[in-house]
Design a binder for these strands. Structure first.
Lengths: 145, 145
DNA sequence: GGCTTTTATATCGCGCACGATTATTTATTG
DNA sequence: CAATAAATAATCGTGCGCGATATAAAAGCC
């Protein structure tokens, strides 16, 4: 029986290091947009659907308000979004893309293809792997919440 | 042609959120050991091979000294390791498990099985997925370094 | 042997990421 | 309608994680 505590057999370690590796591939691409990786994900979520609330974004990105609030303030300082209290419900903060934020999408449009290229796989293969990883996340989330 | 900027189609987003989900599953288990997730990975690496250098650990864990040095200082303060300058080469710092650090392995031995259980998959399936994710990391690393 | 270059670790600043707490607003309840 | 509870962001403290830089030791060079 082999030692069960071998780092290279841990799926958690594989995911952890793959996440860092993806970050390193994205960094030079995102530097040209003036975005960090989590900021980029928030912008993608807003390009998909503008006018989301902080809570709604958090649900999509699986992030807490304690993470999102400062991140969104930095995006606001960068001029890509505006943060406005909702009129109907003063508890809610609505995030809206600025003109510059909308324009940024054009500069970001080519990034996914760069990642596919860097992965050295075809798109279909990546999509299959992506679905498997999402399934893993969903199974794990069930055990936590 | 669909919009290529859909968050849910991003493999990077799948890995990013899966990494966070794993962290959330590990947290309650590691709390009982007094370890964070990266600290746990460092301990696993040391249980595999004691007496590694900071640089050697960084290579295994894919971390910089700017990340490892403070992390290892916290493990030293917790009493799990000792940090000693090498006699042969004064630039090098060697990390050695303390008695308490060695004993901690027994308390950690059951954790991997908890993760397999939480993933809702069998071990063979996880191993296959793990290998695929490692392959992705390796392909990505090639494009960066 | 002194000078430069390389190597190994540490330090610093910034941006996540989260848990715990707080403040404010809205909803509920008696 | 007043008291209470719930919901929504924001704030605070801690620990990564990295790039840039600093420090110190070792190695290479003339």
């Amino acid at each position: 029986m082999q030692d069960p505590l071998k780092l290279d057999d841990f799926i958690c370690f594989a995911v952890y290091t793959a996440s860092h590796a993806l970050n390193r591939v994205y960094k030079p691409l995102l530097d040209t947009l003036g975005l960090t990786y989590p900021q980029y994900l928030a912008m993608v979520a807003l390009w998909e659907q503008d006018g989301q609330t902080v809570g709604g974004l958090g649900e999509k990105l699986f992030l807490e308000s304690s993470t999102l609030t400062p991140l969104l303030k930095r995006l606001e300082n960068a001029g890509y979004i505006r943060r406005e209290r909702s009129r109907e419900d003063e508890r809610v903060v609505v995030i809206r893309l600025s003109e510059e934020g909308i324009r940024l999408k054009e500069k970001a449009i080519g990034i996914p293809d760069c990642i596919v290229e860097a992965s050295g796989r075809n798109a279909a293969d990546l999509t299959r792997l992506q679905a498997e990883i999402v399934a893993l996340r969903k199974a794990l989330d069930k055990r936590v919440v």
